[in-house]
Amino acid sequence: MTMQIADSVSLSTPDAKARLHAVAARENLRTEPKAVRIAIISVAVLFLTVFVVLPLVVVFARAFSKGIMAYLAALSEPEALAAIRLTLLVAAISVGLNLVFGLVAAWAIAKFEFRGKTFLITLIDLPFSVSPVISGLVFVLLFGAQGYFGGWLRDHNIQILFAVPGIALATTFVTFPFVARALIPLMQEQGTQEEEAAISLGASGLQTFFRVTLPNIKWGVLYGVLLCNARAMGEFGAVSVVSGHIRGETNTMPLLVEILYNEYQFVAAFAIASLLAMLALITLIAKTILERQLDEGHDARDH
């Protein structure tokens, strides 16, 4: 900030020209000929347009290809409504669980020193690198008819697989790291001084957490919840394996997209897909805003 003010002030002084000259010379040393620049920008823009923009556009184009009435009709089908409800429920469960876990784990990892910390963080990160299909498979192996707990569950008449608990469990597995990973670096960077100050002023552990720690990490919490939620609502592979695809009961929105698409109900499939695409876009916009908030917090600390 001060840099910019200094620059704008210096423009009105006599040696402003000389400075501009120096700036231009400095830029020259660090850039390429104009033709190269244009070529690189074109390649980048073209690539992103083909691979990212067009797929997004095509979702909405096909969703509305038969007009807005057909679009709304597709979304108000009972099957569609059931899928939306189930998706919201599953996301609420897994985001809730991972939020609590994320806060607890970040407190233990960021505020204390202990051996094996890096290893623990690697373990928390594991789900990021496990194929979604395998994330579903592990629960089939535990709770399926031939699974380790399958017999016991059947005897006690508890349904996990092909029901909400299984879907919520697989989704929780897949979204496990998001909140913790958003909070750990943030809390490590903030250190423990404010918490120590609170304790020495007589605050209890919970008072310290809710009055001092939480207000400082609120944007980070929101950031983690946002990404966790986007993944939870959009998860396909893991949920596909554990859901059993029971229409109107265990189909989440992404699963319904697949079923409708395979039945050549393209408008309906893309109508549901457009809702998920909108979720993705809103998530990205919110993420950009939150990142700015987090950066400001960062600057305030550096100040």
């Binding site: 992103l48 990212v52 923009v53 797929p55 997004l56 095509v58 979702v59 979604p132 986007a230 609502m233 959009g234 998860e235 396909f236 592979g237 929105m253 992404p254 699963l255 997209v257 697949e258 698409y261 499939a269 893309f270 897909a273 998920l276 695409a277 979720l279 993705a280 876009l281 998530t283 990205l284 993420k287």
Partner: peptide
């Protein structure tokens, strides 16, 4: 928009 592939549910990306 570089982040779209992160955020877009994979089934949606697949059909698109």
């Amino acid at each position: 928009i570089v982040d779209v592939p992160f955020a877009l549910p994979t089934a949606v990306a697949g059909v698109a």
